[in-house]
Design a binder for these strands. Structure first.
Length: 564
DNA sequence: CATGACTGCCC
DNA sequence: ATTCTGC
DNA sequence: GCAGAATGGGCAGTCATG
């Protein structure tokens, strides 16, 4: 299969906004992919090069792509960055420059899907000295032989972001449509195999029989079920029904644990293998559970200080997640506890269609809790707003992140954010800050300032101290008069731009905004020494001037208060 | 050998 | 992670 | 109601650079 054909598909999908339209186009394309390009084509359509269980990564980002474009076109990196700011997308930059390039004596061979995919795998497999130059060379070589349209998508593949409005959901629907299957069945196949090419291959070969008895595969990570967010206890109950299980939400990270005939393996939410990083968790499970029956359970791994029985901040445990060296030392320095909250496979049987309350009951039976090592997540079953409120309040007082509401009768729906699980976090403080910088946006936000550097005031010196950036909470479209759009922000701020530096602009401190956040963190990056966790815009404060914004003293007080 | 830029992935 | 938007 | 695409801080690892 020619890469040109795939590029045309991408172009067509990018131009269609309706989901059903995308599914129709993609379904008919999928039916006709020849078997010898099936896996490669589906990997490229899903915008990835390596499978989630592979340890290799592509290791290509914006900077490396800009270097490659610069080499192929002979245009300076500064000029390319300028175009990037203007167009909001490096794929479009490559396309534009490629079409403007004088077609000299270029020997243009036609690229194939296989060739493109294999080249990217080769790029990802490079390591050691000289790697970056080699990657740039391989990528430029692809671009050299590519048409303008192909260049657009080669660049986006390099960044593993096709921007064609096609995600897992649409690929699943398309496969279902192509082979007249139930989308839920295809979804389950994907949740188990994590490989679109493989499941299409199976469907073609085995027909509808593939959907019989799909069960999780031991040793192969399964996609996990995600929660939606609620703003209040009543809203949470409305989503999951009454009674509901209400559980503590721990500020750690999520793992899926497989017992493969006595051997334990751990995967993260995005299916990265982290078994080596957590030998302590492995031994907790060996201590607490019998391993004679295979299982797949889910847990939150959270930092825990045994001495004062307090949970540690997320930043601590994040030091352990990707660690390859000094693992044993960190096991001692940053102890963790596993809080198990679900089981999806046990003793040869899939539990995905078993109601949550029964899965939870099974967990109670198979885990012997050991304080500070492994326990079930704390929770209550109630229909009462008052009991729910008390449980929530207590969780917050203990420094937990919030609570989860769970539908007692819900099946396990892998890979989706459905209304079976709802998270509820406490309402937060806000800060009034001034905008001192910004960055030009990408993709559909190209041409607007979309991320704003914010600062608080040192009341002693009058100096402004940066405390992070905010780019969430603004509107793209004005629907109500008081909506604040990126366009509003851009118009308001462009007169105050002091200087530009690539995508970044420095702005005279005039515009005051109110931002909300979940937590104040110590920051090595910002001049205030603090940063906001999950910052988002609330509203403009035209009534306030730079002198009225929040101070570093207040930030320090808030930081001390949240430590409890 | 130390440092910084870049990338990928936790939240 | 949060938020907005189109369907 | 959901999927997709924007956007946040900060961690470790890798490679380049000086």
């Amino acid at each position: 299969m020619k890469f040109e054909e795939l590029s045309q598909l991408f172009k067509k999908l990018e131009a269609i906004s309706e989901k059903t339209g995308k599914v129709n186009v993609l379904a008919s394309f999928i039916k006709n992919i020849p078997e010898d390009s099936l896996r490669e084509a589906l990997m490229l359509i899903s915008g990835s090069i390596f499978y989630p269980w592979e340890e290799r990564k592509l290791g290509v980002g914006e900077k490396l792509v800009m270097r490659a474009i610069s080499i192929v076109t002979g245009i300076s990196k500064e000029k390319i960055e300028e175009l990037f700011v203007k167009l909001g997308d490096l794929g479009l930059v490559a396309e534009k420059l490629s079409s403007e390039k004088k077609q000299k004596t270029i020997f243009k061979k036609e690229l194939t899907v296989k060739e493109v995919y294999e080249t990217f795998r080769e790029i990802g497999n490079l390591e050691g000295e000289g790697t970056i130059d080699k990657k740039v060379r391989l990528l430029s070589n692809l671009l050299l032989h590519a048409s303008p349209l192909e260049s657009r998508y080669i660049v986006r593949i390099a960044l593993e972001d096709l921007k064609i409005g096609v995600g897992e959901g649409i690929i699943i629907e398309s496969i279902a449509s192509a082979y007249s299957l139930n989308p839920e069945d295809v979804e389950m196949l994907y949740a188990v195999y994590n490989d679109f090419g493989e499941i299409i291959y199976k469907i073609r070969k085995e027909g509808k029989t593939v959907i019989q008895n799909i069960t999780p595969l031991l040793g192969k990570p399964l996609r996990v079920m995600l929660a939606i967010k609620a703003e209040s206890i009543t809203e949470a109950f409305d989503v999951v029904g009454r009674p509901a299980m209400i559980e503590a939400k721990y500020d750690g990270f999520r793992v899926q644990i497989h017992n493969i005939n006595g051997r334990l393996e751990l995967w993260t939410r995005r299916l990265e293998n982290v078994t080596k990083q957590f030998p302590d968790v492995i031994s907790f499970i060996e201590e607490s559970m019998t391993l004679d029956k295979p299982f797949i359970i889910e847990a939150e791994i959270v930092g825990y200080d045994q001495r004062n029985k307090k949970y540690l901040p997320f930043q601590m445990i994040s030091q352990r997640i990707k660690r390859k060296y000094d693992i044993e030392r960190m096991v001692k320095e940053i102890p963790v506890e596993a809080r198990v909250f679900d089981v999806v496979y046990f003793d040869g049987k899939s539990l995905m269609n078993v109601p949550f309350k029964d899965r939870r009951n099974l967990l109670e039976k198979i885990i012997n809790p050991i304080e500070g090592k492994i326990q079930l997540s704390e929770g209550i079953i109630t229909s009462s707003d008052k009991e729910a409120q008390d449980f929530f309040n207590e969780a917050i007082e203990r420094g937990l992140e919030g609570v989860m509401f769970k539908n007692l009768n819900a099946p396990y729906h892998p890979g989706r954010r459905v209304g079976y699980m709802v998270k509820l976090k406490p309402t937060k403080e806000t800060l009034d800050v001034v905008i001192v910088g910004a960055e030009w946006g990408e993709g559909k936000r190209g041409g607007w300032l979309t991320s704003f550097t914010i600062a608080v005031r040192d009341e002693e010196t009058g100096e402004l101290l940066e405390i992070g950036e905010v780019g969430s909470g603004f509107k793209e479209k004005k629907e109500n008069p008081d909506d604040v759009t990126f366009e509003d922000m851009t118009n308001m701020l462009k007169n105050y731009i002091i200087r530009s530096e690539g995508k970044r602009v420095y702005i005279s401190p005039k515009v005051v905004i109110e931002v909300i956040y979940d937590e104040i963190q110590k920051s090595p990056k910002y001049s205030s020494g603090f940063a906001l966790r999950f910052p988002r815009f609330v509203r403009l404060r035209p009534d306030r001037s730079v002198e009225d914004i929040d101070t570093i003293t207040r930030v320090m007080e808030l930081y001390e208060r949240q430590k409890g």
